[in-house]
Amino acid sequence: MNDTIQILLQHRSIREFKERPLTREELQTIIQSAQAAPSSSFVQAYSIIGIRDPQKKEQLAELAGNQPYVAQNGHLLVFCLDLHRLSLAAELEGVSVEKTLTALQSVETFMVGVIDAALAAQNAVVAAESQGLGTVYIGGLRNRLPEVVELLKTPERVIPLFALCIGEPAQPSAVKPRLPMAAVYHEEEYTEDQAHTELLQAYNAQMSRYYAERTEGKRAEGWTAGIAKQLKNPKRLYMKEFLGSRKLPLE
Rank of each mutant, 00 (worst) to 15 (best):
M1Q: 09
N2V: 08
D3E: 09
L8P: 06
Q10S: 13
I14W: 02
R20I: 04
P21N: 05
L22S: 09
L22T: 06
S33H: 06
A34E: 05
P38H: 08
S40L: 07
S41H: 12
Q44H: 14
A45S: 13
I48A: 05
I49K: 11
I49V: 14
R52L: 15
P54M: 14
Q59R: 12
Q59Y: 02
A64M: 06
Y69W: 06
Q72R: 12
Q72K: 11
H75F: 05
L77I: 00
C80P: 00
H84Q: 03
R85S: 05
S87G: 04
S87V: 08
L88E: 09
L88R: 07
E93C: 14
G94Y: 01
V95D: 06
V95P: 08
S96G: 04
V97R: 09
T100H: 01
A103P: 00
A103Q: 10
L104V: 01
Q105L: 02
M111A: 10
G113L: 09
G113T: 10
V114T: 03
D116E: 06
A121P: 13
A128G: 13
E129M: 15
E129A: 14
S130G: 15
L133V: 13
T135L: 03
N143V: 07
P146I: 13
E147Q: 14
E150H: 15
L151E: 13
P155S: 10
P155N: 09
V158R: 09
V158M: 09
L161M: 15
L161G: 15
G167L: 07
P169E: 04
P172Q: 12
S173C: 11
V175K: 08
K176R: 10
L179V: 00
A183D: 01
V184M: 02
H186A: 02
H186W: 07
H186Q: 03
E187G: 08
Y190C: 00
Y190F: 04
T191D: 03
E192A: 09
E198F: 00
L199E: 09
L199S: 07
L200D: 03
Q201G: 00
A205H: 03
M207G: 02
R209Q: 15
Y210R: 05
Y211G: 01
K218R: 15
A220T: 02
G222D: 00
G222Y: 01
G222N: 01
W223R: 00
W223T: 00
A225D: 04
K229E: 12
Q230R: 15
K232R: 15
N233S: 15
P234I: 13
E241D: 11
E241T: 07
L243T: 03
S245M: 11
S245A: 12
L248S: 03
